[in-house]
Design a protein around this nucleic acid. Structure first.
Lengths: 276, 276
DNA sequence: CAATACTATTCCAACCAATGAAAGAGTGCT
DNA sequence: AGCACTCTTTCATTGGTTGGAATAGTATTG
C-alpha cells in the first residue's frame, strides 16, 4: 500500500474516531446523572457518569447553564436549576394534580398528623408527587420526586390496579423484584389483590422497613374515569386501625377526583350495603 | 450510467439556506414555549412559538418524548413530562429548600389558615416554590412555579434586600415596571424600605389586585448567612393586624433557617429592646 | 519544592448528525 | 370535490458538533 502521508508526525487534530448519540440525548443524559444521592456534581463527574469526554460535557453544560436548566455553585459544581423546576411545574401529571389535590391532602394531614402521599405512575414505577409529613413523623422510605415499585407499595397497587389491562398483564408476567421489608405476593394473590383494590377502592400494605408501617391508598380519577393518581396515608403499625383510616383516605381521594371533573358514579364497589 | 445532471429539473433536496442555533438551545426553547397558559401544545404550535420548521421541531420533540421530558397526550398534543419533574425535584433551590421548609410552613398554615408562600430569587424575579392555601382562601396572584416581581411583592422585597450589593444597585437603577394593584415606590423610599427589611427581618406589602390583601414576608438564611428564600403570609386586608402576623412569620422563617444550618446570631435588627 | 495526578478549559480540523424544502398522508371544513 | 390545515417521511447538503491534544490551574505527595 502506498503511504504518501506520514500520519505519525502530524498531530491528529480533529480526528473523531467514531461517535454516536444525538446531541439532545447527550444533554438529557447529563441531566439524568443527577439523583437523590448526587445533587451537586463536578464537570468530570458529570462527564464520567454520562459517558462522554470532558470537553463535550463542558460545551453541553454551558448551554444548559445559560438556559437555567443547571446552575453553577461557587465551588464550580453544578446543580439542577430553578428554571428547569419552573418548566417542570407545568407538568400536568406532576404539579398539575398536586395543585388540585394539595388542599385536600392538607385537610387529611391536619386531621391525622400522619404522612400523606400522592403518586402517579410513570412506566413501571410510581413517582411520588407530594408528601406531607410532620416534623416528628416516622421515617418513610420515599421522598418527593422519588420512585417506588408498583407491586409492593399501597400507591403502587392502586396505580397498577387502575392501569390498562395490557400493561397489567405485562407487569404481572415479569418476575417480582424483591424489596426489603415487604412480603412478595405470588402472582395469584396479586391478581386477587388488584381485583379487590378495584372493587373496594382501597389498597393496603404493611411493611417493616425502614420502620413498621401500614399504608392505606385510594385511587384518584380524572374526568374520563381513568386512574391518574393514588393518594395514601402511612401510619406506624398499630397506631390507628386501618379500617378507620380507609374511609378517610377514600373520602379524600373522592374529593380530589370530583375536583378533577370526575362525576362520582355509583361508587365502585360500594353497592347498597355499607362498606366492607 | 452517466447522467447528464440537469440541476434545473431535479428538485433541490436538502438545500439548507442558512441556519443557526445549537441543537440544545433549540430543544430548550421548545421547553420554554410551555407556560401557565400553554400546558398542552400541538406540534405546529410548538414549532411556531419556538421559531423553527415543523420537521425540525418534530425530530427534537421525538427525542424529548423518548426521554420523558415531554409526554404525548391521546389527542396528539404534548405536555411537560413527569420525568422532567422528577429531575427538577433535585433542584436544591427548588425542591431542596421546599422539602426542609414544608413542615414549618404547614404549622404556620394550620395556625393561620391563610396563604403561606415560599419563594427564591432567579435573576430579576422571585420564583414561587411553594404555596399552601385552604380551599376557600382569598384569590392570590401567584401560583407555584410562577414568577413575581421583586420590587412590588413582600417576598420580592425580602429577596432583593438579601441580594448582593451589586445586584441591588443594578435593580434600583432600572426603571420600575408598573404593576396593577400596587403602588410603585420611588427609588429613595425603596432604598429605605430595603434597609428596614434588613434591619427588622420583615417586609410588608399591601395590594388591591386581584383582591385586597396584605403580605408579610421574612428571609430564610442558609449556613453561610445568605438569604436563600423568602417566606410570607398573605391575608385579606383588615382580617388580621400585620403586627400580629410579623412575629409568627419571622419565627417560622427562623425555624427554617435553623434547619438549613443557619446559626441564629444575635438576631439582626432586634437588639435588646423588644421589636419595632 | 519538584513531582504527580488530578480537574477545568481552550483550540481546531475533520466529519457526520442535523437540517428543512418537498412531497405524501391524514383530517376537517365548505 | 376542493381547500386549508397539520403531521410525517424522505434525503442531499453542510455547518454545527466533535474529542484528542495542549494549557492552565489546583490539590496531594515524597
Amino acid at each position: 500500500m502506498t503511504v504518501p502521508l506520514d500520519t505519525d508526525t502530524i498531530p491528529t487534530r480533529g480526528k473523531r474516531p467514531k461517535q454516536g448519540e444525538p446531541v439532545i440525548d447527550r444533554a438529557l443524559s447529563l441531566l439524568a446523572v443527577f439523583s437523590d444521592r448526587r445533587r451537586a456534581l463536578t464537570l468530570s463527574e458529570l462527564a464520567r457518569h454520562a459517558g462522554m469526554p470532558a470537553p463535550t460535557a463542558l460545551r453541553l453544560i454551558a448551554r444548559l447553564v445559560a438556559w437555567g436548566a443547571l446552575e453553577r455553585l461557587e465551588d464550580g459544581r453544578y446543580v439542577v436549576g430553578v428554571r428547569l423546576w419552573e418548566v417542570a411545574s407545568l407538568s400536568p401529571r406532576g404539579h398539575g394534580v398536586r395543585e388540585i389535590a394539595l388542599p385536600y391532602l392538607e385537610d387529611l394531614f391536619e386531621v391525622t398528623r400522619h404522612h400523606v402521599l400522592l403518586a402517579v405512575r410513570d412506566n413501571e414505577e410510581a413517582v411520588l408527587i407530594e408528601r406531607l409529613s410532620s416534623k416528628d413523623a416516622t421515617e418513610v422510605a420515599y421522598r418527593v420526586g422519588g420512585r417506588a415499585p408498583l407491586r409492593s407499595t399501597a400507591v403502587g397497587l392502586v396505580l397498577l390496579a387502575g392501569a390498562d389491562q395490557q400493561f397489567q398483564e405485562a407487569t404481572l408476567r415479569k418476575p417480582p423484584e424483591s424489596e426489603p421489608g415487604v412480603e412478595n405476593m405470588p402472582e395469584g394473590q396479586l391478581r386477587r389483590t388488584l381485583s379487590d383494590v378495584r372493587r373496594t377502592g382501597i389498597a393496603m400494605i404493611r411493611r417493616s422497613h425502614p420502620s413498621q408501617t401500614v399504608s392505606v391508598a385510594s385511587p384518584v380519577f380524572d374526568a374520563q374515569g381513568s386512574v391518574v393518581a393514588a393518594l395514601s396515608i402511612v401510619v406506624p403499625d398499630g397506631s390507628t386501625p386501618p379500617n378507620v383510616l380507609a374511609p378517610a383516605v377514600r373520602a379524600t381521594a373522592r374529593a380530589v377526583s370530583r375536583n378533577l371533573g370526575h362525576l362520582a358514579e355509583v361508587s365502585p364497589g360500594v353497592r347498597t350495603h355499607s362498606e366492607g
